[in-house]
Simulated assay, not measured.
Amino acid sequence: MFTGIVESIGRVENIVKEGENLHITLGWNLASELKIDQSVAHNGICLTVVALTDTTYTVTAIKETIDKTAIGLWCVGDRINLERAMILGARLDGHIVQGHVDQVAQCIGIEDSNGSVYFEFEYDQSYANITIEKGSICVDGTSLTVVDSGKNTFKVAIIPYTLENTLFGSYKVGTTVNLEFDVIGKYVSKMVSLGWSQG
């Protein structure tokens, strides 16, 4: 379980393909604090630490993860938003994030608003995921509030701190990102689609 508050940015140091799996080694200033079997969110993707050095760690992505996220687009040198799993009893500064990416989206617009920057994203609506105005959305592991919700688009407003301390400062129109929709909204959407009603 995560909060969507990015701790810092790591760097892809190596990628090894083995069958349908990808073994990805990342450099991170917190690598020495990790342990084998620990969960870390990588641009919102929960992956398990399988190997460690003092300055790097390795995770493995299976075909399911590669098919449903943007991880297959990663290259050596790419910067990645990283967050360790939340500690029980700590403040939940973002929202409940599982690290289970629902689908990808593309950035279709960036607008400077004299103090914040609006980013607009478009996603495939056939997955039946939705956003709501002022609802929560997780973009590449960053917990955000939806400020403009469309049928298969949404906007978020990014403050300067977030621009500087996450990958948002590097996004361009056409950038592919991972999305995790609000878990409560997903349950409600599923119940409605199944015709569930109380009583």
Rank of each mutant, 00 (worst) to 15 (best):
M1D: 08
T3M: 05
T3L: 00
T3V: 00
E7M: 12
S8M: 10
S8K: 11
S8Q: 13
E13N: 11
E13R: 14
N14G: 03
V16W: 08
E20H: 14
E20F: 04
I24L: 07
G27S: 15
A31V: 03
S32W: 10
L34C: 12
L34I: 04
I36F: 09
S39I: 07
V40N: 05
V40T: 01
V40I: 10
H42M: 01
N43G: 03
N43C: 10
G44H: 01
G44F: 07
L47M: 11
V49A: 01
A51G: 09
L52G: 04
T53I: 09
D54Y: 09
T55F: 02
T56H: 15
Y57C: 02
Y57R: 03
I62F: 09
I62R: 11
I62T: 09
K63Y: 12
E64P: 07
T65I: 04
T65Q: 09
T65H: 10
T69G: 12
A70E: 11
W74L: 14
V76F: 01
D78I: 03
D78S: 10
R79A: 11
I80R: 05
R84P: 06
R84W: 05
A85S: 14
M86Y: 02
I87V: 08
L88F: 13
G89A: 08
R91H: 12
L92V: 04
G94Q: 05
H95L: 03
I96N: 03
Q98G: 14
G99Y: 02
Q106W: 14
C107I: 11
I108N: 12
E111L: 05
D112R: 09
D112Y: 05
S113Y: 02
G115S: 04
V117F: 00
V117T: 14
D124Y: 14
S126P: 06
T131W: 07
I132Y: 11
E133H: 13
K134T: 01
G135E: 08
S136I: 05
I137E: 00
C138D: 02
V139K: 05
D140H: 06
D140C: 08
G141Q: 02
L144V: 00
V147S: 05
D148F: 06
D148S: 12
D148Y: 07
S149Y: 03
K151I: 08
F154Q: 03
K155F: 06
K155S: 14
K155W: 07
I158S: 01
I158K: 04
P160I: 01
P160Q: 06
T162Y: 06
L163W: 11
E164K: 14
T166M: 02
T166E: 11
S170E: 13
Y171N: 08
G174E: 11
T175F: 09
T176K: 14
V177R: 02
V177N: 00
N178D: 12
N178A: 09
L179R: 07
L179N: 08
D182V: 00
I184A: 07
G185K: 08
Y187Q: 13
V188T: 13
S189Q: 15
S189P: 06
L194E: 15
G195C: 12
S197H: 15
Q198R: 15
